[in-house]
Simulated assay, not measured.
Amino acid sequence: MKALFQGFFIPYINQSSGTNCYYFVMADKPYIMNASSFNAKILIVDDIPKNIQVAANILKQENYNITFAKSGVQALEKIEKIDFDLILLDVMMPEMDGFEVCRRVKANEATKGIPVIFLTAKTESESIVKGFEVGGIDYITKPFNGIELLARVRNHISLRTTQKELEKANATKDRMFSIIGHDLRGPIGNIKSIFSLLTDNQKSFDPKQFQTFLSLGRESAESTFALLENLLNWARTQRNQINFNPKKVDIYRLTLEMISLVSLQASNKDIELINEVEPHAIVFADDEMIKTIIRNLLTNAIKFTNDGGKITISGTSEGDYFQMAVRDTGMGMSEETVVQLRENDGYTTSGTAGEKGSGLGLYLFKKFVKMHSGEFDIQSIPEQGSIFSFTIPQHL
């Protein structure tokens, strides 16, 4: 148990929610604290070191990550670098007071959502009102009351967590609607047009023309299905609903299956698909995730390879690991673009034939490799081609 002045913590599990919590007992009164709020990042800003020390000693008992600043300028520098969950901000400071610091925080699109609690020795209504006017969410008077400080901080951390979850949910919803409205509408419209043309004019087409339109319809249907599958997988990852079910997988067979799935897309650009995966190679992995990875890497390579090019997929055992790579002879990328692909999710651009993308394939590639405790790499040379590779443990 951790001592806090005259209080102590008693850990327990909330049976209704299954979350880890603590009873904080002080003066024979219990206070419930949710462990999920622990490790929140809090910035304490005060020009008097003793005030920082007192507040930090109270808050560190809940395992918050505490950072401090002794001036408004120093505080703004730290806020630019760290995504804080809460700011405890002294009002009376030299050079730049707390009100001005708060104004600048709220004027910045990237930081305006961070809650600010003012620390003040003043209790005059004018000072309190001014704090709210510049964007403060609460205030605490000095000297600190330990229970009050913990309770107010805990409440605002909880609200900030809820706010972040809502923002993430809204961003997920907006992106999903954007993909549905833009990326799915095009291929579905193509399918509708092709089959309307075939239905209304079937007698005017010779067998070769008829087969050509059927192939186009099939290609559009397959690409739409792949995009929809990516969209559903991506949505599940956003809600942490993807299950990892590893088992023995014949990765050579999976590769053949995925090559067959994209063969029509490749043939339409006269691209040769070469399979150099070790025959009968067995790995312990989630077969659906591996299928998604291979399909997306092949589809991406086809998208960025010019007509008449080559795409080679290889897979070899290297000790306790299995490495796969998809190499194309496509348009390649600059080093700057490669860095963006490695570090960011959702990056997309048009292919050699104007093919559109959603960026979900790259996100799922990196996400699923990570879920296998593996690593990925991207290499490219402009006008020569690219290599997307990943390595996963052969035995989990």
Score class of each variant (00 low, 15 high):
A3D: 11
F5V: 07
G7N: 01
F8I: 04
F9Q: 05
N14G: 04
Q15S: 11
S16R: 15
T19R: 11
C21A: 14
C21M: 12
C21W: 04
A27Y: 09
D28K: 14
Y31W: 11
N34S: 12
F38R: 10
N39Y: 10
K41S: 05
L43Y: 03
K50T: 13
I52E: 00
Q53I: 11
N65K: 15
K70P: 10
G72I: 05
A75I: 11
E80R: 13
L88E: 01
L88N: 05
P94V: 12
D97F: 02
A107R: 08
N108S: 12
T111D: 01
P115G: 02
P115I: 00
I117S: 05
F118H: 03
E124R: 10
I128G: 04
G131H: 00
F132V: 08
F132A: 07
E133A: 11
G135M: 05
Y139M: 07
P143T: 05
R152A: 04
V153L: 01
R154Y: 11
R154H: 13
R154T: 10
I157C: 02
T162K: 14
L166H: 13
A171I: 08
M176H: 15
M176R: 13
I180F: 10
N190L: 13
N190V: 09
I191S: 01
S193T: 11
L197E: 09
L198Q: 07
S204L: 14
P207A: 04
K208E: 15
K208P: 15
Q209R: 10
G217A: 06
A226K: 05
L231T: 07
W234T: 06
A235E: 15
Q238E: 15
N240Y: 13
E257C: 08
M258A: 14
L261F: 15
V262C: 05
Q265F: 10
I274H: 06
E276F: 09
M289R: 02
I294R: 04
R295Q: 11
K310S: 08
I313C: 09
S317M: 12
S317E: 12
A325C: 08
G330M: 05
M333Q: 05
S334A: 06
D345Q: 09
T348E: 15
T349R: 14
E355D: 14
E355T: 04
K356V: 10
G361I: 01
Y363C: 13
F365W: 04
S373R: 12
I381C: 11
P382S: 10
P382T: 14
E383T: 08
G385H: 04
G385P: 00
I387V: 14
F390S: 03
F390I: 03
I392A: 02
H395R: 12
